[in-house]
Write a protein that binds this DNA or RNA. Structure first.
Length: 144
DNA sequence: GTCGGAAAAG
DNA sequence: CTTTTCCGAC
């Protein structure tokens, strides 16, 4: 567990500059990025349970991802394989039965000394937080 | 559609 | 190490 300025998050969410995988944007980070922007709600959006999101337009998400990584031949088949590698890493898991739906493991994300809410001692409080609050808190840490 | 092995790229 | 590419199996 690593500690940031205002929040503490698991090591899977922490990628220092020197870390091998940090040189290029991580897929799950990119997903979080799209999820945060309203203009992509027709392409990918939060839906269902806490941390759950649905890819409404798989081809478009793949196109956007390919654009970011300069991989013109990216498609949902390949993007989804990358997402499946996250299962064992406990970053994501599949919401079975729901098409194009995955779920972030925010249960491993613990916020401490949050400016407005005191949830460090109450796991229930974390569940009450909206995903957008979590993302808004996490993204500044990951961005340059 | 989803899964996960295998090989390979960076 | 993460992700890309390819693909057989269900």
């Amino acid at each position: 567990m690593s500690v940031g300025c205002c929040i503490a998050f698991p090591d899977w969410a922490y990628k220092p500059e020197s870390s091998p995988g940090s040189r290029q944007i991580q897929l799950w980070h990119f997903i979080l990025e799209l999820l945060q922007k309203e203009e992509y709600q027709g392409v990918i959006a939060w839906q269902g349970d806490y941390g759950e999101f649905v890819i409404k337009d798989p081809d478009e998400v793949a196109r956007l991802w390919g654009l970011r990584k300069c991989k013109p031949h990216m498609n949902y088949d390949k993007l989804s394989r990358a997402l499946r590698y996250y299962y064992n890493k406990r970053i994501l898991h599949k919401t079975k039965g729901k098409r194009f739906t995955y779920k972030f493991n925010f249960s491993k994300v613990v916020l401490v000394n949050y400016p407005l809410l005191d949830m460090a001692s109450s796991p229930q409080k974390l569940e009450e937080l909206t995903c957008s609050v979590i993302i808004t808190a996490l993204l500044p840490v990951f961005n340059d």
